[in-house]
């Protein structure tokens, strides 16, 4: 008897299947989908690379072409949103895009290549031009000097001045 009652309830409920591929799916505002780097905003600081739990975001410096590559591999991403939380420039954010199926692994990458900045003292590349430019723009006039040389040179310069002070 109960068996029939259940079936009657089901009949009353009607069709529940969504017409997904034929009609677009409505997704909630909050959906954590594909992360996208806005290449104009990204400065290549690598903060997102540090926090990414599955290492979906990686960073590679190529000295020959003097480029820094921030590589986002969506195939490994776990959509935790840590990068979005951390990015100081708001360059990476999670979109609502979820239809990510791809025919080849290559399609799952996003690459952002930025020019490396060379320290004017030692000539070694240590970060991107864009980042130094933004830092210099943000700093007051008297503090800019410290930003445009690499940390190693900054150390030696400081040591140099200190030794003058002691003399």
């Amino acid at each position: 008897m109960n068996r029939i009652k259940v079936l009657l309830e089901n009949l009353r409920k009607g069709v529940v299947t969504e017409q997904y591929p034929f009609r677009p799916l409505r997704v909630p505002e909050r959906l954590r989908g594909k992360p996208v780097i806005d290449p104009d905003k990204c400065a290549g600081c690598g903060a997102c690379v540090n926090v990414c739990p599955p290492n979906a975001l990686t960073m590679r410096d190529d000295k020959h072409s003097s480029m820094r590559f921030i590589v986002l591999f969506i195939g490994r991403c776990i959509y935790c949103g840590k990068c979005e939380e951390t990015c100081p420039f708001g360059a990476i954010r999670l979109t609502k895009e979820f239809e990510l199926a791809a025919e080849s692994r290559e399609d799952l990458y996003q690459v952002v290549g930025l020019r490396l900045y060379h320290c004017p003292m030692c000539g070694e590349p240590f970060t991107t031009v864009r980042l130094i430019k933004r830092i210099v723009e943000a700093l007051p006039e008297e503090q800019r000097a410290a930003a445009i040389i690499c940390p190693r040179c900054r150390e030696s310069v400081t040591a140099h001045y200190r030794s003058y002070a002691r003399r």
């Binding site: 594909k34 290449p39 480029m67 969506i74 895009e97 239809e99 990510l100 199926a101 791809a102 025919e103 290559e106 399609d107 799952l108 990458y109 996003q110 690459v111 952002v112 290549g113 930025l114 020019r115 031009v129 864009r130």
Partner: peptide, 16 residues
């Protein structure tokens, strides 16, 4: 297919 590889390389002249 909706997902495509995207690449961006900063312009050399400007950066230099």
């Amino acid at each position: 297919q909706k997902q495509v590889r995207s690449e961006y390389y900063e312009e050399q002249a400007l950066a230099e």
